[in-house]
């Protein structure tokens, strides 16, 4: 129940700051781009667009959200909040993943205008986005400012993006397969009919990174908040 209240609050916050409106607009631009794209490249272009923007949008915004919450003094109330660290982290990650999934479905439904596996597309973008958002939140907890966040986020974001792009462009290597970005691209690619059936391993990588991320965030987030506010009893 506490989780759903937090989730509702976060979604309201995203609506207030215009994230939904912004992503409808950005999705519309991508859709126009896909209309102009030659037919044979449309599916591939859509998969790259979804992977590099909607799926990763949370890791871009979460730094600002965390830093604004800290500056507004919200973290000082952590000591008296009934919310558990895991609920806080999941609420942040899931609320932003909604926008990612919505944007991805819109881009495919209007931009590609073909029947695709929407259930798998939604589930994979949602899952991948949750993983990226948790990683983003952990990085944000070390940041001093938005500029600092953008700087320290470069290495992890590069590590998430490059293996998936290499795989998408045809480079195959077992090491690339242990990246959650690659796993996400394979799932998106399959749902759009441009990649092979994702093996169990792909789902395993996503679940593994989500679990590791949640475990680390569960330790890191309360510690970061305690340095700013009261300790939880």
């Amino acid at each position: 129940m506490r989780f759903f209240s937090a989730l509702k609050g976060d979604i309201r916050y995203h609506i207030k700051y215009g994230f939904y409106f912004l992503y409808m607009f950005i999705s519309a631009l991508y859709i126009i781009g896909l209309f102009m794209c030659p037919y044979e490249y449309k599916g591939f272009a859509a998969s790259i667009i979804i992977l590099t923007d909607p799926a990763m949008l949370g890791s871009f915004f979460i730094g600002g959200i965390w830093l604004l919450e800290r500056q507004e003094g919200l973290h000082r109330f952590w000591g008296i909040s009934p919310l558990k660290p895991l609920e806080y982290v999941l609420s942040k990650a899931v609320s932003l993943a909604f926008i990612s999934a919505l944007s991805a479905v819109l881009i495919v439904a209007i931009g590609l205008q073909e029947t695709h596996n929407y259930l798998l597309l939604t589930a994979s973008v949602f899952m991948g986005s949750v993983v990226f958002n948790i990683i983003g939140l952990i990085i944000a907890s070390y940041a001093r400012s938005v500029n600092h966040y953008m700087l320290i986020a470069i290495p992890p974001v590069t590590l998430l993006t490059v293996p998936s792009l290499l795989t998408a462009f045809g480079s195959i290597h077992p090491l690339l397969e242990i990246s959650p970005g690659t796993a996400l691209w394979r799932m998106i690619g399959y749902s759009l009919g441009i990649a092979d059936t994702p093996v169990l391993w792909v789902w395993g990588v996503q679940v593994l990174f989500a679990a590791l991320g949640l475990y680390y965030a569960n330790c890191r987030i309360p510690a970061a908040m305690q340095t700013e506010g009261n300790q939880k009893a």
């Binding site: 994230f19 912004l22 600002g64």
Partner: peptide, 25 residues
């Protein structure tokens, strides 16, 4: 109004490249 809205608006900075692409395409 704040850094979160700033992040949202900075996404639109990318659109400023659009004119460049339109000249070619």
């Amino acid at each position: 109004a704040n850094r979160v809205e700033g992040l949202a608006l900075s996404k639109l900075m990318g659109i400023s490249f659009l004119g460049l692409f339109i000249v070619w395409f």
